[in-house]
Design a protein around this nucleic acid. Sequence first.
DNA 1: GTGGGAATGAGAACGTGTTCTCATTGCCGG
DNA 2: CCGGCAATGAGAACACGTTCTCATTCCCAC
Lengths: 185, 185
Amino acid sequence: MARSQAARRRRVIDATLELAAGGGFDAVQMRDVATEAGVALGTVYRYFESKERLLLEANLEQVEALRVRLSERPPSGASAADRVVDVLRRATRTQTRRPEATAAMVRALGSARREESDAVARVSEAMTGIITGAMHAGEPSERDRAVARVLSQVWLSSLIGWVGGVDGPDVVGNDLERAARMLIS
Amino acid sequence: MARSQAARRRRVIDATLELAAGGGFDAVQMRDVATEAGVALGTVYRYFESKERLLLEANLEQVEALRVRLSERPPSGASAADRVVDVLRRATRTQTRRPEATAAMVRALGSARREESDAVARVSEAMTGIITGAMHAGEPSERDRAVARVLSQVWLSSLIGWVGGVDGPDVVGNDLERAARMLIS
DNA sequence: GTGGGAATGAGAACGTGTTCTCATTGCCGG
DNA sequence: CCGGCAATGAGAACACGTTCTCATTCCCAC
């Protein structure tokens, strides 16, 4: 049964991503997710306690996928700053390429309640891990971690500004690059 | 009539802040806002096109009030970094003192749609203006503005982490202080 | 196989943000 | 004072996230 449950979960997340890619947060309607995934509405809620959590878990998958891609094809660049900038620009490009899906997931990140704090924490930790990993091999120093934390915070705020229509997509990459170069010397 | 309209608007925002202080975002129910403000539900929507905008306008007032307090009592500190840290800590203290109200407004910031982009932009600009003002008198340089922008982004992300239950209230202040000291030498 | 308990499907029901309708009120130029 | 028009009040109506109910299905121990 574990197999069919994993398949169900997968279908639900896939349906979520597809609907999100079509029209963002508002297009991810739980009834539609259920229908498209071929499960009952109650089943969606058995697997994901809320719409936000559903989108957060989907987002976590994306971030983990990014981490895998980066381990397969490590960032290029001579200095730590260059490598971090490369990683951040790659991540930004991936996300601006699917604006609506990103908008949906970022909105879930920005409006998370306490019930979803663990999911938000996992996304944020994954992102800081990706950034420290780009700096250099081996264990990151305390300062490395602090820098990565700041960068992941800038990353989130920039994305919020972008999906909220405050900034254009290029602003995200530029803000991140400038922040990275100011913080990593 | 403009006078009574301004009074109505004031009552609506006051009711919003009161409800928000009581139980955060979810406690701000538009019907309750209307009742408490002594207006009809439709009138609330005539003044504020959505719940998010209502909370964003309330937040903008708070940030503007902070700016006024700072101009009356300028930040202490010998260096630019010290003054910025002082400002950020004061702001953080003000907000953590009314956790639920802050949570409501931060959640509105984090989940804003494109329709509210102007309100989000105003809040963000007010915050960067406060930070550049703390650095030194006179016109800020391009780099000053970039630093302030990063700090206001860290500020937003930290608050989101705090209201989302990911971090404790002290983390917000510490993250901001560390970021400020790393960025302002 | 069979019984029992958990998972699922199907769909009703509820709460709250948002919109809509329509009657009433308040103001302003004539 | 009056007619008209925008603003407001009162509340119904609608949409979607969430919860609940109950019948059905699936799996595992025996």
